[in-house]
Design a protein around this nucleic acid. Structure first.
Lengths: 127, 127
DNA sequence: CCACTGATTAGACAAGCTTCTATCCAGGGA
DNA sequence: TCCCTGGATAGAAGCTTGTCTAATCAGTGG
């Protein structure tokens, strides 16, 4: 954080070279979201009322079988982007904001200058 | 920009469901960066002095052959994340900031409240 | 004109990913 | 208890991706 802003692009990823291990860890996270279906699933879960969505709300939207949706949800969960919980007959998923923030911090034009609530620490990008 | 902050996660991806076409386009961009080698290439290009890097500076860093590096650079270029230019014997690549900003806008905790220079329009995420 | 260096293209192959069908586990109600 | 529904797991088929070797293109200099 020593060097002041230069004239080049200001996203963290373009400020200093990523280490080999950091790149590997971030790639795992990015691979999880680098799919149209999973991108929409993530988006639907996050924007659903209450911040959580039942699997039964998700399966009908796609032209895909239930096991396929289940597979994609597992990929997102394994990557640490969402978390699931069974309540009675149904299973509900919700976003884990910290994981999404890691990606935001990587590509953001600048670390969020927001004052307090939900401020993203630049240290996040070092995972 | 109308809706005020709600109580749920504030990243654009978690505010409203992504359309099928938007998800497909963003997935192309994300697939391009969802690889450890390409992530490091992007980072090295962006952080290099002058905002551009010669291919000859990149090939030596990895335990990969030149054609493989060339392949990864082509993937990044095809996705619109970098642009290359030949000057004499060497080829130089530089980051296209707008493309990186699209990703930042997707996952950022909030649209960059930065005043002028390089401000990211939320409209970018609708691509 | 020829040779040399930097970089890309072409083609091949192994590994991984997405999707399916078939099967199994967990809860709720008659 | 038995069955029915919501959801996950297992295994296989087909396509995509990452990497290599071999060959080609672009400039520079003798």
């Amino acid at each position: 954080m020593a060097a002041p802003a230069t004239t080049q692009c200001c996203a963290p990823i373009a400020r200093e070279p990523l280490s080999e291990v950091d790149a590997a860890e971030l790639a795992v996270l990015l691979k999880a979201v680098a799919d149209p279906v999973r991108l929409r699933l993530l988006s639907m879960i996050g924007s659903h009322a209450g911040g959580e969505a039942c699997v039964c709300d998700l399966t009908g939207v796609f032209d895909l079988t239930a096991p396929t949706i289940s597979h994609h949800l597992k990929v997102l969960r394994t990557a640490g982007l969402i978390d699931g919980e069974r309540r009675g007959t149904w299973v509900y998923y919700r976003i884990i904001p910290e994981a999404v923030n890691k990606l935001g911090a990587l590509f953001a034009p600048l670390a969020a200058p927001a004052p307090a609530a939900g401020a993203v620490d630049v240290a996040l990008i070092t995972v």
